[in-house]
């Protein structure tokens, strides 16, 4: 049920992408996202698409899972492409009242769809191959310079770690409580929106109660182990840039220059 959601789920594995430094992965993700939005013609988009495909194939995660995460957003893709088809400029090839389809509209629709697909694929790749703890750990390191502005980077990262850590737990708990209430004949499927929301009360109240209890227990446990915040804490697992990471960065830089060159020398489509 709820647990079937694949978007943002870590899949343990042993591939190159899994082993890459999470900091490098995050920076490359940001670079790729920027890149996807900087591609203005089909050639540069194709270059990015090829790069994304290579990364995905290297990622040691079954392609089925990527398809599953795409399935979630298929509606969004459909809506945006339909809207885009009708928003093109130029001579219409089909017209009905104020609705008109132009060649540029079709291009635009395809372009935007590919962009969204690539975005989802590349971000799924990060979450599939990086455990939540590694992710927040890397984020904390990357945000360290913000300490200059008196931003409590460690505390924020810790909060994120804890939040991420408890997402599956809470989902599991929701599942369990829902089952228990269904076993008592609760009807959660039928009825209108208001009825459905009301039917959730027997699930939400126990869920909140247990979330607060967990939070309290966790705080207690952390205090018992003398947790005091970030200053002077050392790490069990420290991150080091390896040779393979350098290779990743070079790969990304090549793609980056490729796309920028394509953008400069080939006429933009949108």
């Amino acid at each position: 049920m709820i647990r079937d959601i694949t978007l943002g789920q870590y899949v343990p594995g042993n591939g190159i992408v899994h082993k890459a430094d999470p900091r490098v992965k995050i920076i490359l993700l940001i670079a790729f996202i920027t890149l996807i939005f900087c591609a203005f013609n089909f050639v540069s988009l194709a270059v990015i698409a090829a790069a994304v495909m290579i990364i995905i194939l290297l990622s040691d995660v079954s392609l089925k899972l990527y398809f599953k995460s795409l399935k979630v957003i298929i509606v969004i893709i459909l809506i945006t492409s339909i809207l885009n088809i009708f928003y093109g400029t130029g001579t219409p090839i089909w017209q009905f009242g104020i609705l008109k389809i132009t060649m540029s509209g079709i291009y635009r629709a395809v372009f935007v769809s590919v962009r969204i697909v690539l975005l989802i694929l590349i971000s799924s790749c990060l979450t599939f191959t990086t455990s939540p703890t590694d992710l927040t750990d890397a984020l904390e390191r990357l945000m360290k310079p913000l300490k200059v502005f008196h931003i409590k980077v460690h505390e924020i990262a810790m909060m994120m770690t804890i939040a991420l850590r408890f997402v599956p737990t809470l989902l599991e708990e929701t599942d369990k409580i829902m089952s228990a209430q269904k076993a008592r004949g609760a009807d959660m499927e039928s009825g209108g929106l208001i009825k459905k929301v009301k039917a959730m009360t027997p699930v939400l109240i126990p869920l909140f109660v247990s979330a607060f209890r967990r939070a309290y227990d966790l705080a207690m446990a952390m205090e018992c182990r003398c947790y005091q915040g970030g200053d002077g804490r050392t790490r069990m697992k420290s991150l080091h840039i390896k040779k393979s990471d350098v290779f990743c960065i070079i790969f990304a830089v090549v793609i980056l220059t490729g796309v920028v060159l394509c953008d400069i020398f080939i006429a933009p489509i949108i």
Partner: peptide, 15 residues
């Protein structure tokens, strides 16, 4: 309603 089910640790369902 015909097959009643008491879950493991059922106290978490009270609301």
């Amino acid at each position: 309603f015909k097959v009643g089910m008491v879950f493991q640790y059922p106290e978490y369902q009270l609301f």
